[in-house]
Amino acid sequence: MKRLIFLVIVLYIVVGMVLIFVIDEKKNTIKYFTVDLNYSRLMTDSEKLTFSIFFNDNNNFLVDKNNITSIALRNYDTEISLDLISFTEVDSNLQYQDEMYFQYLIEVEFETINMQGLELVIEDAFLDISYINSVDLSVSVGDLYLTFSSIEVDNYLDYVSLSGITELVGGNEYLAGVMIKFNNLTNGEIIVNDIYTNNRKIGFNLKDYYYSDTKPSGKISELINNYSSLKLEKTTVIINDEGYYVFPIIYLYSFEKLFRFPLFIEYSYNGKTYRLNIDDYLFLNETVNFNEYVGNINSYIYQYQESN
């Protein structure tokens, strides 16, 4: 009998120890972060926007789309509700400050509101996500410059080559110019009056452009010697579609990482003014280590409540 009691006690101890080692201690916090980016877009019909959030755990209620009741973009003076299309894990094992993160892509659209023709600027924007259990996340996403318009066939002006030219500033590479070869579809003269984008932090210098019959390459300072001292100056340009133009980008405040934005080319033909819309083109893409982006990263911690 004594032996049986002893065996039961030993069994309890062994099972207890196994449970202690095998069962994971439930995390009482979830770490997550976002990276501030420039979202400069030409929003064509039912185009979607995507934002990334990085979580250090992929098995919690925050990453389940079914738990989200509403989603909105806001800053100090604007708030706009969005339709959530998807909330998907797209990557894992991403290291940031000695911890591994999972990347989630949040895809949204502006379907419920008619935005056609609108210019929406939301600088220092936050994405507000509300959950079914009254939990709200508010994460910084960066600056949004959205033009709700369309791409139409232009009968007078087109382009046959488009790419970006970069510059190294303090060891970092920034987009510094746009190389474009035009296609004059008329027999007459086309005058470019202005080139601009919807990102309010940059402009194009039309006075100090570079022109060559052959496709230019290299950094912008190899093409335009005094690039670093250029100002935002405008003039009209009678286009020659035999060669390549490089129009320098002027950063109005400081250099920023830009990868993608639309271009609007205002031009005159036969005394009338037209605008060629070029959709938000991806000029370049970088592969990065998050630890190099610390200045643009917003870190957050979700603390489970007692009742959870």
């Binding site: 990334s52 892509l105 369309s150």
Partner: peptide, 18 residues
């Protein structure tokens, strides 16, 4: 080796093809 990441945003671009 440390795993690097890139912007995984789906890239949509409308273009006119003559």
């Amino acid at each position: 080796y440390s795993k690097l990441t890139t912007n995984k945003e789906k890239y949509e671009f409308e273009i006119i093809v003559d």
